[in-house]
C-alpha cells in the first residue's frame, strides 16, 4: 500500500474543499435553515407530532441524510471527474499507485466532506429545534456508512460521466427523488398501503429509517434490515469499483 499517495490525494482533495469553504458550509446552513423555517415553523406548527416527536425534530435526520447523500455523491463524482476533464488524470495513471489507493483517497475525502456538512446541519438544527440522540454511536455509524457508500456511488458516476451534464444527471434525476420519497419529511406509515409497499423498493427508505431510529428510537423498518440495506448498497458499489479496477473501464485505454 502506498499510504503516502493516499494521504496526498486526500489532502489535495480536502484543500479543494477548504478553498471553497464559504460555499461548502454556508450553502447547507442556509438551505437547512430554510427547511426549518418552512417545514418546521410555518407548516410544522399545523402538523401533529409524528410518532411522539414534534414535526420540526422529526425531519432533522431526513434533512441530514438528504444533504449528506447529495453532497457525498456530487463531491466524489466531481473529485474524480475534474482530473479527467482538465487532463491531470495522466498523473494518477502514471504514478505507482493502485486503483484501490486512488479510490480510498478520493472516496475518503468526499466522505469526510459529506460528514462535515452533516455535522454542520446537525449543529444548525440544534439552534431551531430540540433534539435528543437516543443512540449516538449508532447515529455516527449510520452517518459514516452513508457518507462512505454514497461517495463510492459518486466515484463511479465520476468515472462514468463523459461530460458535466452526465455528472449532474444521476444526483438530480435519481438521488434527490429517492431521498425525497424515502421518508425524509414523513413517516412512511403516513402513506396509503399501496404506496407503503412501493416505497419498500426505495433503498433510501432503509437508510433514513435507520438513521431516524438512532435519534428517536422509533423506525419505519427494523434496524437490522436498515443495516443490511446499507451494507448491501456498499457492497454493490465496492463490487462495481472492483470491476472498474479490473477492466480499466473509462479510465485506461
Amino acid at each position: 500500500m502506498n499510504f503516502i499517495a493516499i494521504s496526498a490525494i486526500y489532502k489535495f482533495e480536502m484543500a479543494r474543499f477548504f478553498r471553497t469553504m464559504m460555499q461548502s458550509i454556508i450553502s447547507p446552513v442556509i438551505s437547512t435553515s430554510l427547511y426549518f423555517v418552512v417545514f418546521g415553523a410555518a407548516i410544522g406548527s399545523r402538523i401533529d407530532n409524528v410518532e411522539g416527536v414534534s414535526y420540526g425534530s422529526f425531519i432533522v435526520p431526513g434533512l441530514i441524510m438528504l444533504s449528506v447523500m447529495t453532497q457525498a455523491t456530487s463531491n466524489a463524482s466531481f473529485g474524480i471527474y475534474f482530473p479527467k476533464f482538465i487532463g491531470t488524470i495522466y498523473e494518477l495513471l502514471s504514478a505507482p499507485v493502485s486503483f484501490l489507493e486512488i479510490t480510498i483517497g478520493y472516496v475518503g475525502a468526499a466522505a469526510t466532506k459529506a460528514m462535515f456538512i452533516g455535522m454542520i446541519i446537525l449543529g444548525t438544527a440544534y439552534m431551531f429545534v430540540d433534539i435528543q440522540i437516543a443512540h449516538p454511536a449508532a447515529m455516527l455509524a449510520f452517518l459514516v456508512l452513508t457518507c462512505f457508500s454514497f461517495s463510492l456511488l459518486g466515484f463511479i458516476i465520476g468515472i462514468w460521466a463523459g461530460n458535466f451534464e452526465q455528472l449532474q444527471l444521476i444526483p438530480l434525476l435519481i438521488i434527490t427523488p429517492l431521498v425525497f420519497l424515502g421518508g425524509s419529511f414523513y413517516s412512511i406509515t403516513m402513506l396509503p398501503p399501496v404506496w407503503q409497499s412501493i416505497t419498500m423498493f426505495n433503498p433510501v427508505v432503509y437508510l433514513i429509517s435507520g438513521f431516524r431510529w438512532s435519534f428517536f428510537g422509533t423506525a419505519d423498518v427494523g434496524i437490522g434490515l436498515s443495516l443490511f440495506a446499507i451494507a448491501l448498497f456498499t457492497a454493490i458499489c465496492l463490487g462495481a469499483i472492483w470491476w472498474i479496477f479490473r477492466t480499466g473501464w473509462r479510465i485506461r485505454q
Binding site: 503516502i4 499517495a5 496526498a8 490525494i9 498523473e91 504514478a95 505507482p96
Partner: peptide
C-alpha cells in the same frame, strides 16, 4: 502544493 502532490503520489 501541486508539485508536492506529485511527490506524494510517488510515495
Amino acid at each position: 502544493n501541486t508539485v508536492q502532490f506529485s511527490r506524494g503520489l510517488f510515495g
